[in-house]
Computed example of a mutant assay.
Amino acid sequence: MVGNGVTDEIFDGNALLPFVHGMGLISDSIYEDVETSCKGNFYKYYSEDTEDNNDDSCSKSFQKVDRAIEGLNVYDILEPCYHEGDSNSAWMKAAIANGTLPKSFEELGFTNNNDERHLKVRKRMFGRAWPFRAPLKQGLVPLWPQLLAQTRHVACVSDVVASSWLNNNAVRKAIHAEEESVTGAWELCTGKIEYSHDAGSMIPYHKNLTALGYRALIFSGDHDMCVPFTGSEAWTRSLAYNIIDEWRPWNSNGQIAGYLQGYDNNLIFLTVKGAGHTVPEYKPREALDFYTRWLEGRPI
């Protein structure tokens, strides 16, 4: 089971443009201009080690896309974009210092009888996620500090509450973390970790495992712009397995919760409607529903 997973440099690199166009974030004319200028190979625009990234016409066309989406939260385009030093951050820092956080923050992680989490809490929590535009290829995987270079702040994300909570002595003790004097303070997307990828595209691995008979569920929150569902849909289709369950909605709590397509060799591609990069964070009930059904071997 893989959720919003970076899988292949080309498929994931080419996924952004159709996603932002399909979501109405860029105009038809911008989409057509980039299609023409980049000749369908959008992923080369991000490449660091190919002469194709010096293609002036492609680069200039894609700058229009960048300008259109730069103010969006990449992990869920429906979520707010928080800015470093804005009034929200200042208010939260002051509230934490004074011990006057509202009830929703005091109940951080609380789940009520309807399995719905407090949205106001979720908007302000953030864990490690794949950095936007970090391609899946052999070599060092650039994390946010390397991508941003001049600033430690991850675009649109507020880590005020997460930092305060994870640096609390009682919390550190409860999760068996070393004392701050030993490991230092918790930091959002620290640059102290280096991760190198040496396996290339994951598609051959998926092909091998599914051909051996292992079941696979590839799911995507359909509002994640960091690893768009358009790339996952494309690479699962590229395996060229026969479609045995044609694109259809799946339900949770009596409502359409997303869409799925089933293939030979026990492969399913599934979207979760309205979810971002970390599906259970945004849609816990729906995530539990499809997860439970899949584990039990029931139809989703």
Rank of each mutant, 00 (worst) to 15 (best):
D12K: 11
V141T: 14
V121K: 05
R237C: 04
S220R: 02
S27E: 02
P284Y: 00
F269Q: 04
H21K: 14
K44D: 07
T100I: 06
Y31K: 10
W247C: 01
L119E: 13
R293N: 09
G3F: 12
V74T: 14
I10T: 10
N168C: 06
R248F: 02
P135L: 12
T151V: 10
F105E: 15
F269K: 03
V279G: 01
G13D: 02
G99T: 07
S158G: 04
S57H: 12
A15N: 08
W250N: 03
L140S: 04
K123D: 08
G109Q: 04
D33R: 14
F11H: 07
D198H: 07
Q63P: 00
I244F: 06
F219N: 02
D33N: 12
L136F: 09
R248G: 05
Q255L: 07
L188Y: 06
S201T: 09
Q255N: 10
F105M: 15
V157K: 10
V171N: 06
D52Y: 08
A170K: 10
D66H: 10
K64R: 12
A287W: 01
M23W: 05
R133Q: 14
L17E: 02
T36L: 09
A177Y: 06
N41L: 09
W186G: 04
K207M: 12
R128I: 11
M1Y: 11
N242W: 13
I10Y: 03
I243D: 05
G254R: 01
E286A: 12
V154P: 02
E79K: 15
A199Q: 15
